[in-house]
Every structure is written in structure tokens, then in C-alpha cells.
Design a protein around this nucleic acid. Structure first.
Length: 492
RNA sequence: GGCCCGUUGGUCAAGCGGUUAAGACGUUAGCCUCUCACGCUGAAAACAUGGGUUCGAUUCCCGUACGGGUCACCA
């Protein structure tokens, strides 16, 4: 059964989806779904100049792979469509005129030039309300003459407008500070300020969920609801997601870390880029759910949530007020944990896409990749880690030296010389038989097993640090290639 | 600059008048180990600041500092 909660995610298609957008969508979705409510996707494309082709698709794809399925939206339909603002264009003018009729808005014929001049005169000031009190006759005449116009909201000159935000509490501002903001632009499109209010009302949105950069402009929107005589929605402003970015200080010329709102300018993190870099959408969602929200009570220590658990646990009351810094390290940790939890089959399927190199036939590819399961935190690490399987790195004889296992370069040579004929006899080439053979060799030579395994691993891999032990690596390489490498090692 | 918001370890973050101030990431010591990773056991690390209120403030109020947001025919 559907509850009465209706939320929406209303992005403008101006580029890629960054983590900040995604989190807003996620919280909006969770607020609705916690109460079995309705989640709407609405595209806000009233800025015709900033449109980016393909951006809408990207938004839909992102919501799809993150599981934020919307009940109403473009392509999906619903009782409140269309869900793209440019397709709703006639609606806004109609409502704007209604406001003009009632005296809450007015036509403004000021030219851009005049407004710019105004700005230069008074840097902090805004519009001087030049057209606010034009007589009906003047307005009629200008309209009849075909003068370009905008429609502005007529703000109260005194008093104070206050609203209650579900996260931040009471927020107010003196009406004198409010600009007579533009509702309808000269190109006939509405501004965000106007369109979102009309749409949220028409679409029955009960909870307006958005970033806290709107906190201080919300009184203006509340006033719009009042002017229409509509009931104000519940406002849920989210703490900002901050990004760290390195900048060169203009004065000192030194590098410094700047923390600011996540944006394309400053440390923006694109969701698509993260996925391409080998992050799992589930891990990203889990991580960002916890940026600005923490479950109450016993669950406050819980880290990993399934989508269902998230829906059940989420509550507006537990949303934080202070901004949160996006931390790559912690995302990486979450991703690593999610990768570990993958079954071998799932891991293999996903890892496959990140293997760029050609894998020679003698390599046991699946076994090789499985050695990395549990050793990587993101899939893009794979390519780097498998290099030594494909080609033996150049290494120095000194690499064989190992203090803990008492291996000297001379001993290594001796061990390898003995290992080669012993391994040539191994017919069933696998981890267990290899391990048994090498253990026997160690006993025969009277050295610790660690010494033998160390030497063999170095010779097989040509690397001090490897994913997997000696026998695992030899198993992956195959008999022929292993022996080839051991002979090279013995010659060092 | 005006207005608005915020401030618990480097980061995320519990706490909602009396606590040895959780937990996680990261850092670090050690154990385990066929090197690494995993895992396990430890360690270092925080209530921005000054006034109140109170028997008692990290928790409530005010100021200060710092950080952030916002002041568009962008959203």
C-alpha cells in the first residue's frame, strides 16, 4: 500500500552525475521508500543554454544501476506528467499570470543592459524594482508593443518569512532582503525558482529533498506557495557533500588543499568514472548513504547495509546538519569489502572486463584472477597486479636474499638447481602436488620449507611481493613456463 | 560585505546534563603466514574558544574565531 509520502529527484541535464547528485537522489528515494511512498524523477531543463546531450540518459542509467527506481518519470509515465519541464512549458506561464492577477507578481520590461548597469552601481544590491509599480495601462501598452518581458515575484517589503526545515529546524529571513526574483524568463521558460514550486505542487510532492545550498532561498519558495494559497511541503535540506581539491594559492604560489561544495569545479567525483575505475555501485551507494546520515541506536555502528536494510533504517531525523567530506580512502575500503563478499563466479564476471592484456594460453586465467579476489579494493588494480604472470620482470640476483628464512644468494642457486629436476617429475601440476613436492625437497635439503618456497616464488615471479604464494603462482604459470623461469633464476 | 548554516581525533561519526567520550577509514606495533593481502590483538589520536545557566556541561544560552553556503533571465 502506498503511503502519502511523495519525493522527487529533479536534476538538470547539464553534464555528468556526480556523487553529490547521487546522494541527493538516494536520500530522496529512501525518504519515500521508507514509508512505501512514491519517488518521482523530473528533468529540469529550463536552462536551454546549459543542456548537455546525453545527460538525461546518464541520469537514468545511474538511477538504474544504483537501484533507485522511480515510480513516475520520463518514459515511465504517471498521473502527473509530463516529467520534463520543457514539455510543461505552457503550464508555467498560466500559473505566472495567475500570480500577476492576484498581485503577487508583475511584468518587468527592464533591459539586460539596465540591470547590468544597476549591478555596477551597487555591487551588493539587486534589482531596484523599477517595474514593480507600473500602471496597468503602461503594462498593457508595453505588452501590446511586443516588448520583451520577464515576470517577477513581488516580495513583501517588510516582515520576516520563516519556515521549518526537517533537518535544520526553523530558518527565517527578513523580507527586505528578498529580491523580486524572476519567475518567467524572457525566453518564455520559467526559472528554477518558479518551475520547481509549480511542479512540486502539481505532482503532489510532500517532501522537498535537496542540498542545503537551497536553505536560504527557500523562504522565497515558501512565499510562492503562500501566494498561490497552497500548503507548503515539508522541506528536507541535506548537508552538503564537500570535496577536497588541490589548488595553487594565488598569492603564495603554494599548493593547498581546498575543501568546498562538491562541484565540477572542485573535486567533483563522477559516478560513471568511479564505476569505470572498478568501484561497485552497491559499495558507492552504501558509502554515500553514510555521508550525512547515521542510523539511530544499536545500528549506529553498523557499516554494511543491503538496499532493503537502508530503506528500513533510514529516517529524516537521523540526517546530520554539518557538511561531510567525501573520502576516497573510505570508499575504497567499502569497495574492497564488497568485492570480498562477491562469490567467485561474480568476481570473475566483473573482473573479466578489467583485464586489458592478452592472456597467453598457458596461463590458468581463472586461477590467476581468483588470486586477486580479496587482494584488490577496486577492479582497476587488476591490470597492474597480473603483469608479472604475463612477462617475467627483470630482477637482480640480490632479490633472493631473505633474512627471515635464512636464504642467501648462494643457497637460492642451490635450491633452484635441486628444484628443477624434482619439479620436472611432477605430472599432475597443481597447488597440492607442488606444495608436497617442495616440502619434500626442503626436508631432503635440510632447510626450512619457507626457504624453498621463498626461492621458488622469487624465481617464478621475479617480484618480491606477489599476490599468492609460490605454489599458487607456479600453478597459474603452468609447468613449462615455471621451469623456464626457474632455469633463468638458477643462472643468475 | 549582508544574510543563513555548521563546529566531537586527519576523515566519516555515536553521544542528546553526570560516560574510562563508542565505532569505522587512515596511521602505527605485534601475531598469523609459502612474500603480500586477509584475519586477529594492541597503540597513538577529538569535544574550536571565552562567558554564562546549573550541584555538575561535549551536551542548554550568548559572544568570538574558524569553516561552509547564498546573494543570476543557473539550477
Amino acid at each position: 500500500m502506498k503511503s502519502s509520502v511523495v519525493t522527487r529527484f529533479a536534476p538538470s541535464p547539464t553534464g555528468y552525475m556526480h556523487i553529490g547528485n547521487l546522494r541527493t537522489a538516494l536520500y530522496s528515494y529512501l525518504i519515500a521508500k521508507h514509508d512505501d511512498g512514491t519517488f518521482i524523477l523530473r528533468i529540469e531543463d529550463t536552462d536551454r543554454e546549459r543542456l548537455v546531450e546525453g545527460a538525461v540518459e546518464l541520469i537514468k542509467d545511474t538511477l538504474a544501476v544504483t537501484g533507485l527506481t522511480y515510480d513516475e518519470g520520463p518514459d515511465k509515465g504517471g498521473d502527473h506528467g509530463p516529467y520534463v519541464q520543457s514539455e510543461r512549458k505552457p503550464i508555467y506561464m498560466e500559473y505566472a499570470k495567475q500570480l500577476v492577477e492576484s498581485g503577487a507578481a508583475y511584468y518587468c520590461f527592464c533591459s539586460k543592459e539596465r540591470l547590468e548597469a544597476l549591478h555596477e552601481e551597487d555591487a551588493v544590491g539587486g534589482y531596484d524594482r523599477h517595474c514593480r509599480d507600473l500602471s496597468p495601462e503602461e503594462v498593457e501598452a508595453n505588452l501590446a508593443a511586443g516588448l520583451p518581458f520577464v515576470i517577477r515575484q513581488k516580495m513583501p517589503l517588510e516582515g520576516r518569512t520563516v519556515y521549518t526545515d526537517a533537518v535544520f529546524g526553523e530558518i527565517g529571513c527578513d523580507n527586505a532582503e528578498l529580491q523580486d526574483q524572476i519567475l518567467m524568463k524572457a525566453d518564455g521558460y520559467p526559472t528554477y525558482n518558479f518551475a520547481h514550486v509549480v511542479d512540486d505542487y502539481l505532482m503532489g510532492v510532500t517532501h522537498v529533498v535537496r542540498g542545503s545550498e537551497y536553505l536560504t532561498s527557500t523562504p522565497k519558495y515558501a512565499l510562492l506557495y503562500d501566494a498561490f494559497g497552497w500548503e507548503r511541503p515539508t522541506y528536507v535540506h541535506l548537508p552538503l557533500l564537500m570535496g577536497k581539491s588541490e589548488e595553487i594559492d594565488a598569492e603564495t604560489g603554494e599548493k593547498k588543499i581546498v575543501v568546498s561544495k562538491l562541484s565540477k569545479r572542485h573535486g567533483a567525483v563522477s559516478f560513471a568514472d568511479l564505476v569505470a575505475d572498478g568501484y561497485l555501485p552497491e559499495a558507492i551507494v552504501n558509502y554515500i548513504a553514510l555521508l550525512g546520515w547515521c542510523p539511530k541506536g544499536e545500528e549506529s555502528e553498523k557499516e554494511f547495509f543491503t538496499p532493503e536494510e537502508l530503506r528500513a533504517a533510514f529516517s529524516v531525523g537521523a540526517i546530520n546538519k554539518s557538511p561531510a567530506v567525501f573520502d576516497y580512502d573510505k570508499l575504497l575500503y567499502f569497495n574492497g569489502e564488497y568485492i570480498k563478499r562477491l562469490s567467485d563466479e561474480e568476481f570473475l564476471a566483473k573482473a573479466e572486463r578489467f583485464v586489458k592484456s592478452e592472456i597467453p594460453a598457458h596461463i590458468a586465467k581463472e586461477k590467476m584472477l581468483l588470486l586477486l579476489h580479496g587482494r584488490i579494493q577496486k577492479f582497476s588494480e587488476i591490470e597492474d597486479k597480473i603483469g608479472f604472470f604475463l612477462a617475467l620482470p627483470d630482477y637482480e640476483r640480490a632479490l633472493f636474499f631473505n633474512k627471515k628464512n635464512k636464504v642467501t644468494e648462494e643457497l637460492a642457486k642451490e635450491i633452484l638447481a635441486a628444484a628443477i629436476p624434482a619439479l620436472e617429475c611432477v605430472s599432475d601440476w597443481n597447488n597440492d602436488t607442488l606444495y608436497a613436492a617442495l616440502l619434500a625437497l626442503a626436508e631432503e635439503k635440510g632447510v626450512k620449507s619457507g626457504a624453498v618456497l621463498w626461492c621458488l616464488r622469487i624465481a617464478a615471479a621475479g617480484l618480491a611481493v606477489t599476490p599468492g604464494g609460490a605454489t599458487e603462482i607456479m600453478e597459474v604459470l603452468g609447468k613449462e613456463e615455471t621451469l623456464r623461469r626457474l632455469r633463468i633464476g638458477a643462472q643468475k
